[in-house]
Computed example of a mutant assay.
Amino acid sequence: MPVIDLDDLPARRPRKGPLTGVDAGERTLGVAFSDALWTLATPHSVIRRSKFTDDAAALFRLMDARGSDVLVIGLPLNMDGTEGPRCQ
């Protein structure tokens, strides 16, 4: 799975379809899905974290159910835009 900058996504994936957004916390993964045209994201569910493989399987099941094949992961940035310690 390639890692690309979000600004490069339209050129790399011209076919539209829902995107999956994940906000990774220490205890939970917040999951949201965009609409097919990438104009609006809506919260969907929360996955209680356990083992990585179980968390990934739960996330991929949600993505399959929505027809999403792109995962957007939010990075915890500091207020000045620099990467926070959790980015590592």
Rank of each mutant, 00 (worst) to 15 (best):
R12S: 11
L19P: 12
P76T: 06
G25M: 08
L71M: 10
L37D: 12
A65M: 06
N78D: 08
G84H: 06
A58M: 00
L62S: 04
D80P: 03
P85W: 00
M79G: 12
P18I: 02
V46F: 00
L6F: 10
A57Y: 02
W38R: 15
D54W: 06
T20S: 03
L19S: 11
L9K: 02
I47W: 01
D69E: 07
D54V: 14
R13H: 09
A36W: 00
L75Q: 11
Q88A: 15
R15Y: 03
F60P: 03
D69A: 09
G17F: 12
S45F: 04
G25N: 14
V3F: 10
N78I: 06
A24S: 15
Q88Y: 11
P85T: 05
D23L: 03
Q88H: 14
G30E: 02
G30R: 01
L59M: 06
L77S: 13
P43R: 01
L40D: 00
D54Q: 14
P14M: 07
G30D: 02
A58P: 01
P2K: 12
E83N: 05
S68Q: 05
G17L: 14
R86M: 13
A11W: 00
L29D: 14
P14F: 06
V31M: 05
I47K: 06
L77G: 14
Q88D: 13
R49Y: 03
G17D: 12
A11K: 14
P76E: 04
L19T: 13
A58R: 09
G74E: 01
A24K: 04
P76V: 06
P14D: 07
S68N: 05
K16A: 12
I47H: 03
P85C: 07
T53R: 13
A65G: 03
I4H: 11
A56Q: 07
T82R: 14
D23Q: 07
P2F: 12
C87R: 03
P14T: 09
T42S: 13
P14H: 09
P43G: 04
F33I: 10
G74H: 01
G84D: 04
Q88L: 11
T42D: 09
A36C: 10
A11V: 13
R48C: 08
E26A: 13
A65T: 00
Q88F: 11
P85M: 05
A65Y: 01
D80A: 07
H44Y: 12
L62I: 04
